[in-house]
């Protein structure tokens, strides 16, 4: 670092963690956080386009989409929602632990968060298997006795497309947390330097937010139809 203008008065950070092209640790932290937030904005548009398409068809075929929604397993769906919200809490507590520099708690909470994520995916798999047994899996095995077969199938296409994409994001999230856990075990983090934990937590909680909306549009609309 030949001509680095380092600002070492900014709160006793580790200069070795400041990459060469940043002037201060604070600048690096703010850049990384902002980068993740902008990425999440792109994710809003990514899933948002699917929500728009879903809305258009749902407005067009409210009956068929209600009928499709009635086939959802509300018990498993609600449990999964609770699990994801809990994992967001453990993730937020993990950030808290990293902020106070408690590495042991950080690691425990990261493992807990990942486990909750895995339980979510397992339950999701059980649901998919049930849909398969019910012959409600478009492109693989789809049967519907009523009149609006293709429109009910449309509901399931969106269901599998959006929840599948969400599950993919969960897998990526678990991978990211594994890397964070590895770095924590390697002793990379301290009370002064823990930005990657916070950045990963943003992603994890965002995936949770997406699920909250998926739950609302897929599971909750068929509840009163069954009665």
């Amino acid at each position: 670092m030949p001509d680095m203008v380092s600002n070492l008065s900014g709160g006793g950070h580790l200069p070795s963690r400041v990459r060469d092209h940043f002037r201060t640790a604070e600048q690096q932290r703010e850049s990384e956080m902002l980068g993740m937030w902008i990425f999440l904005a792109t994710e809003v548009m990514f899933f948002g386009a699917l929500f728009v398409a879903f809305t258009v068809y749902r407005t067009g075929y409210p009956q068929a989409f209600g009928a499709g929604s009635a086939d959802m397993n509300i018990v498993l769906g609600s449990i999964n929602t609770a699990i994801l919200i809990t994992s967001s809490l453990t993730m937020a507590l993990a950030v808290h632990a990293s902020e106070v520099g408690n590495q042991r708690w950080l690691q425990v909470l990261l493992v807990l968060t990942m486990l909750l994520g895995c339980v979510f995916l397992a339950i999701k798999g059980v649901e998919y298997y049930q849909h398969y047994l019910d012959h409600k899996m478009p492109a693989v095995w789809f049967e519907y006795s009523g009149a609006d077969g293709s429109k009910v199938q449309m509901f399931f296409v969106f269901y599998f497309f959006m929840t599948g994409l969400h599950a993919l994001h969960m897998l990526v999230g678990i991978g990211v947390l594994l890397v964070i856990l590895g770095r924590s075990l390697a002793g990379s983090f301290s009370a002064e330097y823990h930005t990657p934990v916070a950045v990963a937590a943003l992603y994890w909680s965002f995936v949770d937010i997406i699920w909250v909306f998926l739950f609302a549009i897929f599971y909750l609309q068929g509840l009163h139809v069954m009665r």
Binding site: M45, F47, Q153, V157, F161
Partner: peptide, 23 residues
């Protein structure tokens, strides 16, 4: 940043529909 994700998802839907022959 704001427009490209929409293209990505739209193309993904086209690919999905083409490969799996669903509506």
């Amino acid at each position: 940043v704001l427009a490209t994700p929409v293209l990505a998802i739209t193309l993904l839907m086209v690919i999905f529909e083409r490969l799996f022959r669903v509506g």
